[in-house]
Design a protein around this nucleic acid. Sequence first.
DNA 1: TAGCGTCCTGACCGGTTGGTCAATAATCGC
DNA 2: GCGATTATTGACCAACCGGTCAGGACGCTA
Lengths: 227, 227
Amino acid sequence: MAATTAAIAETDAPRRRRADRSLPTAGRIRRANVERLLDAAEAVFAEKGYGGATTAAIALRAGLPKANLHYYFRTKEQIYRAVLDRILGLWLAAFDPATAGDDPAAVLEAYIRAKIRLSREHPQASRVFAREILSGALHIRGYLVGDLRRWVERQSELMRGWIERGLMDPIDPVHLLFVIWAATQTYADFDAQIRAVTGKRAQSHEDYTRAADTVVQLVLKGCGVQR
Amino acid sequence: MAATTAAIAETDAPRRRRADRSLPTAGRIRRANVERLLDAAEAVFAEKGYGGATTAAIALRAGLPKANLHYYFRTKEQIYRAVLDRILGLWLAAFDPATAGDDPAAVLEAYIRAKIRLSREHPQASRVFAREILSGALHIRGYLVGDLRRWVERQSELMRGWIERGLMDPIDPVHLLFVIWAATQTYADFDAQIRAVTGKRAQSHEDYTRAADTVVQLVLKGCGVQR
DNA sequence: TAGCGTCCTGACCGGTTGGTCAATAATCGC
DNA sequence: GCGATTATTGACCAACCGGTCAGGACGCTA
């Protein structure tokens, strides 16, 4: 779950009377409020960015007084890290399924569709992640140079194997992954542009399906894997 | 140039003594300082976002006192709009060249390479643009539903013609454009992620060339146009 | 129902922010 | 070189922001 730093709100009691006292059962009220706050924070960070977000706005959106937010998360930075942690958990879960198997088309298609589903189901998470990278990815550098980099290397190895066996055109696997990430996340991150250009008020379920179809078609044929 | 609203700094004297007095020649000092401020603002907005940017930081980066910034741009909002205007001018200029012609491969390849060159030469502009869309694109909605939308419709018409004449696979032209935009801009916007994953300190000229090659290869073969 | 830990929150605070202003200096047209 | 415009800037201000705190409310367990 917690990829870089622990989500402090869940391990740190309000203000521990004694040095270390493990929370007994981490009360249900706490759990519920923390979740409401994280949801609200994700939405506000997605829309306004870290600098533009205010703890007051987050608390308001969560339906709690600002002081209550600061009871669970001591600082704005802390709730931001907790939001990022939750997002990385989501991302990692989506990465795992695609591993070995000698069917490039199936693996690539499944991965692309999973990523687009993520864009549709968690657009705000995607936007917070995008903003974090735009800001230099300081908070998630550990994840990027650790888990993610290893995942990319493994996946690249796999693809190079496919290429050697003639199952796939010679194409730079790393750049292929960058393109797939970009093409799938754009449906969450650049939603406003897509809506403006297409004249739709919102992307429908069919729009996402058509997007996935297009990306799958483009990538599979583009790197010459048989369906 | 000014796509949505006029860059006010260039038409609005310090505090006009009388209602409207057109600036005589818009002095060279003004022009130079405005440009320095826009450069600095673009960098700060790209790195920190609108909410995270401060007029003090922009002025500092431009090497001017904050009060001097507010002499040329009355509000933070105003300098932000001016930065966006400059970016849209850049974007529009890059859009134009690709028009008619019956060689899909040449048109697509030229467009992709032009977009990637833009990512390399103006990464900060790209990031400001990305952040604006993430924030809902409120300031550039006019551009998106106007110029850009018309451009997309024209380009889609062209592609549909190619498809009918069998020069290109049947593929949704609008989604194809979204994918091209995403795949090319990712090299500017997600630079931090790319550097972290590849372990490089900076993307080199060759990296960009390889990126362009990969995207071109993927798109051309992916939608079945002959090179 | 007593007692204790958890939860809640209005009021408050120092620092920062966007923006103003009046006084001064530089530049320009003539 | 002289008046008028344009440019410069330190000092200042009200609003807002993140964060604190004291003290009371609530919810468990025995």
